[in-house]
Each structure stands twice: as C-alpha cells, then as structure tokens.
Simulated assay, not measured.
Amino acid sequence: MVKETKTHVTRVRTLDQLHRGDEIEARLSVGPSYDDVVIRRGRVQETAPGIGVVWIMDRHTGLRKAINTDECTVWRVA
C-alpha cells in the first residue's frame, strides 16, 4: 500500500527566505478568474535578492533557469 503525501505550499514574499536546495514553484497569473499557473518547478541554485532573481535547476528540463520575481510569484514546496 502506497501512502499519498500531501505537499505543503507557501508563498515566498522575499528571496531572503530561500536557501540553496529549497524546492520552489514559479507561478504566473493568467487572469482574475483563473488560478495561477505553474510555469517552473525545481531546486534553488542561487538567489540575487537585490535584483529579484532566483536560479533553479528546472525539474522538467534539467536545465538551470532564472526566475524574475517581477513577472511571477514564488512558492516553496515542502
């Protein structure tokens, strides 16, 4: 029997809250009537809070991707 594990997702308000290895999602708002859409998911590699950018190792592609917090919201997945 396999137990389902529930993921706990919390919004990251400042990049100072992130650490290397944290699992995060980047979400984009598509409109007032819709939920945010996950556009990237992966583990944090590096952050630059001064310019609002976090780099992740993208889980889907395996490539390093930059996420700009001016364009999307960041959520920690635990």
Rank of each mutant, 00 (worst) to 15 (best):
D36K: 11
I51K: 08
V77Q: 05
R27N: 04
G42E: 06
V12I: 15
V9P: 02
V12H: 08
V77H: 01
A48C: 08
R41L: 02
L18M: 06
R43H: 10
A26G: 09
I51E: 10
Y34A: 02
D70L: 08
P32G: 08
D16M: 06
E25D: 05
G50C: 02
T47A: 10
N68P: 00
E25W: 05
L63W: 07
V9F: 01
T10Q: 09
E25A: 07
P32A: 05
M1Q: 04
V44Q: 07
A26H: 11
R40G: 00
W55E: 12
R64G: 05
R20M: 01
D58P: 02
D58I: 15
A48M: 10
D22L: 02
K3E: 11
T7L: 13
S33F: 14
T47P: 02
A66C: 07
V53F: 13
D22G: 05
V44A: 06
Q17A: 11
R11G: 03
P32C: 01
V54D: 09
H19P: 00
G52V: 10
V30G: 13
R20Q: 11
G21S: 02
A48T: 11
R13Y: 08
T73R: 11
W55N: 11
G42Y: 04
D58V: 15
V30M: 10
V2N: 11
R27Q: 12
I67M: 03
R59D: 15
G31C: 01
V37H: 12
R40I: 03
T47L: 04
T10C: 01
V77L: 07
K3Q: 07
R76I: 11
D36H: 07
D16W: 01
K6R: 12
Q45R: 15
E4I: 15
S29Q: 10
R11S: 06
L15E: 09
R20E: 09
T61H: 12
R13A: 03
E71Y: 11
D58L: 07
I56S: 13
R59T: 14
M57R: 15
R64C: 06
G31I: 06
D35M: 05
C72D: 01
A66W: 05
A26D: 07
W55Y: 13
D22I: 02
L18R: 08
H8D: 04
V77G: 08
G52T: 11
R27I: 04
I39C: 09
V54I: 14
I51H: 04
T73G: 04
K3H: 09
D35Q: 11
V44S: 08
R43P: 01
L15V: 00
G21T: 07
E71V: 07
Y34C: 00
D35C: 02
P49G: 01
V77S: 06
D22K: 02
D36T: 14
S29E: 10
T47R: 13
L28Y: 14
K6H: 06
A78W: 05
Q17F: 03
E4W: 00
E25F: 01
A78Q: 13
I39D: 07
H60T: 15
T73H: 05
R20P: 01
E25T: 07
S33H: 14
G52S: 12
I24F: 03
L28V: 11
V2P: 09
I67Y: 05
K65I: 13
G31Q: 04
T10A: 07
G21P: 02
L28N: 04
